[in-house]
């Protein structure tokens, strides 16, 4: 095979190998503490949400509803220094049960996303 053809084949092969099946081009939830669907014994004082992209935290909102439907978030989302793809949300949880987190995120590339998950407090 001529050198030029080998170079083109290698370049194309490399491109295909390097390309993932899906690129996360908007901010989606990557991990959460407490985790998605987790059952934990101790109530957290804050949630930590980690996304696939950097966030504009001032334009993100998170609500946390307890088993009775009441909101238990104790403030607005806060940026995490040095981690532009993370935010924390202070919560005030006093009772066991299932808690539902509804988030709206704005990524630094100006796109909005939203989602919902739940975790359970079971001492």
């Amino acid at each position: 095979m001529p050198v030029r053809h080998r170079f083109v084949s290698a370049a194309l092969g490399g491109l295909i190998l390097l390309s993932p099946a899906a690129a996360f081009a908007h901010a989606f939830l990557k991990t959460a503490e407490p985790g998605v669907g987790a059952v934990v014994a101790q109530a957290p004082s804050q949630l930590l949400l980690t996304y696939t992209e950097g966030l504009e935290v001032r334009f993100c909102t998170v609500t946390v509803q307890g088993p009775d439907g009441a909101a238990v978030q104790a403030g607005k989302p806060q940026a995490v220094a040095g981690h532009e793809n993370e935010m924390t949300v202070p919560v005030h949880i006093t009772a066991p049960g299932k808690y539902t987190v509804t988030w709206h995120a704005l990524s630094v590339d100006t796109h909005k996303t939203e989602g919902r998950f739940s975790f359970t407090i079971s001492p």
């Binding site: 899906a22 690129a23 996360f24 908007h26 100006t110 939203e114 989602g115």
Partner: peptide
């Protein structure tokens, strides 16, 4: 640039 690229469709919701 305002639209959602299809390669990551289906990631929303969690």
């Amino acid at each position: 640039l305002q639209l959602e690229p299809p390669a990551m469709a289906g990631m929303a919701g969690m």
